[in-house]
Design a protein around this nucleic acid. Structure first.
Length: 572
RNA sequence: GCCCCUGUAGCUCAGUAGGAUAGAGCGGCGGUUUCCUAAACCGUAGGCCACACGUUCGAAUCGUGUCAGGGGCGCCA
């Protein structure tokens, strides 16, 4: 047994993070090329091999360089190979193949050491902390408080939360924000709809207004309102009371819906906070740049000169009655965000927002500078969800009463884990068919269970052992000598790639990559499990080594499930 | 008419800052359990990456065009 001090020494010699390893290889190769050819060389890229039979890492920089240097790409690759082979303890082999590919195999010792570290300390430490010391604001859902959340909001809620968690995994400090319009006409319609239901309860006749809300939920609010306040409420005299009551009820409804998925926000930002000061200030900025003009018929009506900023049409931003259209407070809201000085702002909207998003982004670019906006604001537009039940499309109409709510969906599927996982298996900009039967099936058709089952299997093994921490094999040479199977080695190779792939997913703001990684790890683990018995009473050494590998897998699965917000179950 | 997204295996989808033989799950076919959870594993079949042209040493990936599907084009949000 090595002492802690010795172990640390070994680690400092051998265990570099996956990122460091690749960066050192790249710069050594670049330096060698500069030395050899006596000219500037663009950075060399070390990438994961597309096909593991070629090796663990690959580099194709020799080929694009061949034209510039007027050399055979294989000759260039050879220079690069010589620069690194036998110089890095993390490497096993380096070879030049095909037209000029450089293939690199990682050493068993390095992989074993990585595995041991992952087993004892987890893998999250190896995810490059790109966001360390930086703050991000993620805005999502942002549905107006007029009724329950729909399936579309559900996708957005899950997406926004996963993006937030992914950024957190990469070291960012994330604030989740929900913006809602409480000053617009929608709230008045809602109040009037409630008043109509209230009056109907009392036998009076009052129609739900044009564009109002017909959902059954408003009937129950009306009943509650009657219980609380009696029969004597007057419309429109007590309009504010109706509006506040409806708004509050809607908010409770929405936050309950979000709770079903385990999603919470750090801040709910109300449009009314921006009116009038922030909006007036924003209009002032636009006026200074002569980007607005008054309507020829009505001086109070204000237009935004979007067509002069490269957008197709000018738009009204203030109506005759002094109220604002959607775009104006949204611009003010984003100016507020920029004033709060986040390093990154992410907006998540449904694809129906495409035009307004572009308008707002364009205006921000004019007011704040295009570079500032493009470097710190990322807008993600997700496509809609089609619900399918047994091959048949489920009709979803946003018309009154006939829409599928988030709550219905979660209840029918029966599990927030499944909803989250399945929504996150497709990229945001892809249309999604969500099959309710597959989602509700508790069998092998459901990909969530495949991953969770791998975790539960490991938990089952660990329950049968005691003092598992003390059994972790931290000496890489010993670990390597015990884990000799191909599946064991492949599993270690796979685990080593995970931190950088998680990091890449975070940079791209693409949480859909995580379910793929999870399935890959689970598959490799299930294969290993089937072919190698972990607990072998006759062989303590081997048991300890395989437990170490299991612990590393466990940590990897756990960290990635956490990013998706999906439970890692001890038992299934 | 204009704008956005999509078209990859029977189905649902990954893969697109160009790279070597295009991947997975489900479904199909054939196997595996005295042993840590068979919600698992192993094997096998299945593709003109919508189509055409172009750029390139090299294209599912980039460009142009065509076709097909979804969505959006309010003084709603």
């Amino acid at each position: 047994m090595k002492t802690d001090r010795q172990r640390k020494q070994t680690r400092s010699l051998l265990l570099k993070s996956p990122l460091q390893t690749r960066a050192e290889l790249a710069s050594a190769m670049q330096a060698a090329l500069v030395e050899k050819f006596q000219r500037e060389i663009p950075p060399v890229e070390v990438l994961p091999s597309r096909n593991l039979s070629f090796g663990d890492l690959a580099c194709n920089s020799a080929m694009p360089l061949a034209g510039n240097l007027k050399r055979n790409p294989r000759e260039i690759a050879k220079v690069m190979a010589e620069a690194i082979s036998n110089k890095f303890p993390q490497l096993e082999t380096v070879s030049v193949d095909g037209p000029g590919f450089l293939n690199i195999t990682l050493s068993g010792e390095y992989l074993a050491e990585f595995t041991a570290a992952a087993a004892s300390e987890g893998i999250s430490q190896f995810i490059p902390a790109d966001g360390k010391g930086k703050t991000a604001l993620v805005e999502f859902v942002s549905s107006n408080p007029t009724g329950p959340l729909t399936v579309g909001h559900c996708r957005q809620a899950v997406l926004g939360d996963a993006i937030s968690r992914l950024l957190e995994a990469a070291g960012w400090t994330v604030q989740r924000e929900y913006y809602f319009n409480d000053a617009g006409r929608q709230m008045d319609k809602l109040a009037e709809s409630l008043a109509a239901r209230y009056r109907n309860l009392l036998g009076g006749s009052m129609e739900i207004p044009e564009g109002g809300y017909q959902g059954e939920y408003i009937k129950s609010w009306a009943e509650d309102l009657r219980k609380d306040k009696g029969d004597q409420l007057k419309w429109p005299e007590q309009k504010d009371l109706f509006r506040d009551y409806a708004g509050n009820r809607a908010f409770v409804l929405i936050s309950d819906d979000l709770k079903l998925l385990g999603i919470t926000f750090d801040r709910y930002f109300a449009e009314s906070e921006l009116i009038p000061d922030a909006v007036d200030a924003a209009i002032g900025l636009l006026e200074d740049k002569e980007l607005v003009y008054k309507d020829s018929d009505d001086q109070r009506k204000l237009w935004l000169k979007l067509s002069e900023m490269g957008r197709p049409d000018d738009r009204v931003i203030r109506r005759e009655d002094g109220t604002y259209t959607y775009r104006m407070p949204d611009i003010a809201y984003h100016l507020d965000k920029f004033q709060r000085k986040y390093d990154l702002m992410v907006d998540i909207f449904g694809s129906d927002h495409i035009d307004t998003c572009k308008d707002v982004e364009t205006v921000l670019g004019v007011l704040l500078g295009k570079d500032r906006v493009s470097s710190s604001l990322r807008i993600i537009l997700h496509q809609f969800v089609t619900l399918v039940r047994g091959g048949e499309k489920v009709k979803m109409s946003t018309r009154a009463g006939n829409f599928v709510t988030l709550r219905d969906l979660v209840n029918e599927v029966g599990s927030a884990d499944v909803v989250r996982y399945l929504f996150l298996t497709r990229r945001a900009e892809a249309h999604m068919d969500f099959d309710l039967e597959v989602a509700a099936a508790e069998n092998d058709e459901n990909p969530v269970f495949y991953v969770q089952y791998a975790f539960a299997r490991i938990a089952g093994i660990l329950r049968k052992t005691t003092e598992m921490e003390s059994q972790i094999v931290s000496d890489p040479a010993r670990l390597l000598s015990l884990l000799t199977g191909e599946r064991e080695r492949d599993l270690m190779r796979l685990l080593e790639t995970i931190p950088l792939r998680v990091s890449a997913a975070a940079t791209a703001l693409e949480p859909h990559r995580i379910p793929d990684l999870l399935a890959e790890v689970a598959r490799a683990f299930h294969g290993f499990y089937q072919h190698h018995r972990v607990i072998d009473p006759e062989n303590d050494q081997l048991t300890a080594a395989r437990l170490t590998l299991c612990m590393a897998v466990r940590s990897t699965l756990n960290d990635m499930l956490t990013i998706l917000g999906v439970r890692a179950p001890e038992k299934m």
